[in-house]
Amino acid sequence: MESPEMNVGDLVALLSTCDPNTPLRLAMNPYFPMAHRLAQLVESVDETGRPVVYLAEGPDADSQIGPLPPEAAVALTWQRPVQAAPRRPRRIASA
């Protein structure tokens, strides 16, 4: 059975396809999507004693960048794509 959690190997495999100079950010909270700068990696153990790695934002006040771009929220399936309302034909003023 596959684990519902991503492991370090999964993350390394996904990141190996990316340009190593690209900034790495964390998307949080599907109901109010925000972007955060990553600054730390900490190895620890969870409540059952299993090893776990935490990625964390930095301690700076600007570590939370702001709202996640809509395209990213759609790609994460946190939001549905939004389409503009169909345009109605213009009414012509009567003389």
Results as ranks from 00 to 15, higher is better:
residue 1 M to Y: 02
residue 1 M to R: 01
residue 1 M to E: 05
residue 2 E to T: 10
residue 3 S to D: 12
residue 4 P to G: 04
residue 4 P to I: 14
residue 5 E to P: 00
residue 6 M to E: 06
residue 6 M to C: 08
residue 7 N to I: 11
residue 8 V to P: 04
residue 9 G to R: 15
residue 12 V to D: 11
residue 12 V to R: 07
residue 13 A to M: 07
residue 14 L to D: 10
residue 15 L to M: 14
residue 16 S to F: 12
residue 16 S to E: 14
residue 17 T to S: 11
residue 17 T to R: 08
residue 17 T to D: 13
residue 18 C to H: 09
residue 19 D to I: 04
residue 19 D to E: 15
residue 20 P to G: 11
residue 20 P to Q: 12
residue 23 P to Y: 08
residue 23 P to W: 11
residue 24 L to I: 14
residue 24 L to M: 12
residue 25 R to V: 05
residue 25 R to H: 05
residue 26 L to F: 03
residue 27 A to Y: 03
residue 27 A to Q: 01
residue 28 M to C: 04
residue 30 P to G: 02
residue 31 Y to D: 12
residue 31 Y to F: 06
residue 31 Y to T: 15
residue 31 Y to E: 15
residue 32 F to E: 06
residue 33 P to Q: 03
residue 33 P to N: 03
residue 33 P to E: 01
residue 34 M to H: 04
residue 35 A to S: 05
residue 35 A to C: 02
residue 35 A to E: 03
residue 36 H to V: 06
residue 36 H to S: 01
residue 38 L to E: 00
residue 38 L to T: 03
residue 39 A to P: 01
residue 40 Q to M: 05
residue 42 V to A: 08
residue 42 V to Q: 14
residue 42 V to G: 07
residue 43 E to C: 09
residue 43 E to H: 07
residue 44 S to P: 03
residue 44 S to K: 11
residue 44 S to A: 12
residue 45 V to M: 09
residue 45 V to D: 10
residue 45 V to R: 06
residue 47 E to H: 07
residue 48 T to F: 09
residue 49 G to T: 06
residue 49 G to I: 08
residue 50 R to Q: 14
residue 50 R to M: 11
residue 51 P to Y: 11
residue 51 P to R: 15
residue 52 V to N: 15
residue 52 V to T: 15
residue 52 V to F: 08
residue 54 Y to C: 14
residue 54 Y to K: 14
residue 55 L to I: 10
residue 56 A to C: 13
residue 61 A to Q: 09
residue 64 Q to D: 00
residue 64 Q to A: 01
residue 66 G to V: 02
residue 66 G to H: 01
residue 66 G to A: 02
residue 68 L to R: 01
residue 69 P to G: 03
residue 69 P to E: 06
residue 73 A to Y: 03
residue 73 A to P: 00
residue 73 A to F: 03
residue 74 V to H: 04
residue 74 V to A: 03
residue 75 A to K: 15
residue 76 L to F: 12
residue 77 T to M: 05
residue 77 T to A: 09
residue 79 Q to G: 01
residue 79 Q to I: 04
residue 80 R to F: 10
residue 81 P to H: 10
residue 82 V to G: 11
residue 83 Q to Y: 14
residue 84 A to G: 05
residue 85 A to N: 10
residue 85 A to V: 12
residue 87 R to F: 09
residue 88 R to I: 11
residue 89 P to Q: 12
residue 90 R to M: 13
residue 91 R to E: 15
residue 92 I to G: 06
residue 94 S to R: 07
residue 94 S to L: 13
residue 94 S to Y: 04
residue 94 S to V: 13
